[in-house]
């Protein structure tokens, strides 16, 4: 039941995308998001679509995995589409009762829905093809210049990787405690809201206790191995750009340039 959470889920496969440096994938995700909001006109969206489909195909991750992430934002997408559809002023197309659908509204609604879908799919490709550890490593390295102005980049990266690491552990723990209490006749499904919240106590108390216990144990284990922050710490597998990463950057900038060119010269339908 709880295993269905896909947040930050990694899909192991042997593909070009998987092997790219996490920094490339981080910047690619960011540039892709920016490009989506620079998009104007069919041509630019076509470029974005081609780019996305190529990357998904290259990643060898089954498409249904990406779609799983979309389920979470269906409501948000519908709301945005509906608001755009009815509340954009402009040339009226259809009108009934107090509602008016304008040409601009229809266009906005469609583009917004496409944008949101691509945004989720694009970031899903990144999280599905990069291990959580790879992501935090990449983030740490990319942000390391901020160290100079006093931002504790290493600490933030460490907190992030521990948090990510603990998500599946805590989900498993929740599952286990839930089952143990169900074996003792606990009921987590029926009853009104207050009853349900009260029924959660036998789950939440042991969960908190175990979370604190695990945190304690982890801190102890880190200290026992002489962990004392990022100062002078080296990596077993330091991130280094390779030829394929440079090529990926080139393709990425090529794509971004294409979107900008399309926006300037082919902004139809504006």
């Amino acid at each position: 039941m709880l295993r269905d959470i896909t947040l930050g889920q990694y899909y192991p496969a042997d593909s070009v995308i998987h092997k790219l440096d996490p920094r490339v994938k981080l910047s690619a995700a960011m540039i892709y998001i920016i490009s989506l909001f620079c998009c104007k006109g069919i041509a630019a969206f076509f470029a974005a679509t081609v780019f996305l489909i190529t990357v998904i195909k290259l990643s060898k991750v089954p498409f249904q995995f990406m779609v799983k992430g979309l389920k979470a934002i269906v409501v948000l997408m519908l709301l945005t589409a509906v608001f755009n559809l009815f509340l954009t002023p402009g040339k009226p197309l259809v009108s009934f009762l107090i509602f008016t659908i304008t040409e601009e509204g229809l266009k906005n609604a469609v583009f917004m829905a496409v944008r949101l879908t691509y945004l989720i799919l694009g970031t899903s490709v990144m999280t599905l093809t990069t291990t959580p550890n790879g992501l935090t490593d990449g983030l740490e390295k990319s942000l390391s210049p901020l160290n100079k102005i006093g931002v504790p980049v290493h600490v933030i990266a460490m907190i992030m990787s521990i948090a990510l690491r603990f998500i599946p552990i805590l989900i498993e723990e929740t599952d286990k405690i839930m089952k143990a209490q169900m074996a003792r006749g606990a009921d987590f499904e029926t009853g009104n809201l207050i009853r349900k919240v009260k029924n959660m106590i036998p789950l939440l108390v042991p969960l908190f206790v175990s979370a604190f216990r695990r945190a304690d144990e982890l801190a102890m284990a880190m200290e026992a191995r002489c962990y004392n922050g990022g100062e002078g710490r080296t990596k077993m597998k330091p991130l280094r750009y390779q030829a394929k990463d440079r090529i990926a950057y080139l393709i990425l900038f090529g794509y971004f340039a294409a979107v900008i060119v399309c926006r300037i010269f082919l902004p139809w339908p504006a």
């Binding site: 143990a180 003792r184 606990a186 108390v205 042991p206 206790v209």
Partner: peptide, 23 residues
């Protein structure tokens, strides 16, 4: 379950053991 002590939650031992029968 394995490590069943991780499921204890009540304020006293007695109350915890009562949880099953009450359910």
């Amino acid at each position: 379950f394995q490590y069943p002590e991780h499921q204890l939650f009540e304020t006293t031992i007695f109350d915890d053991v009562c949880f099953g029968p009450k359910n």
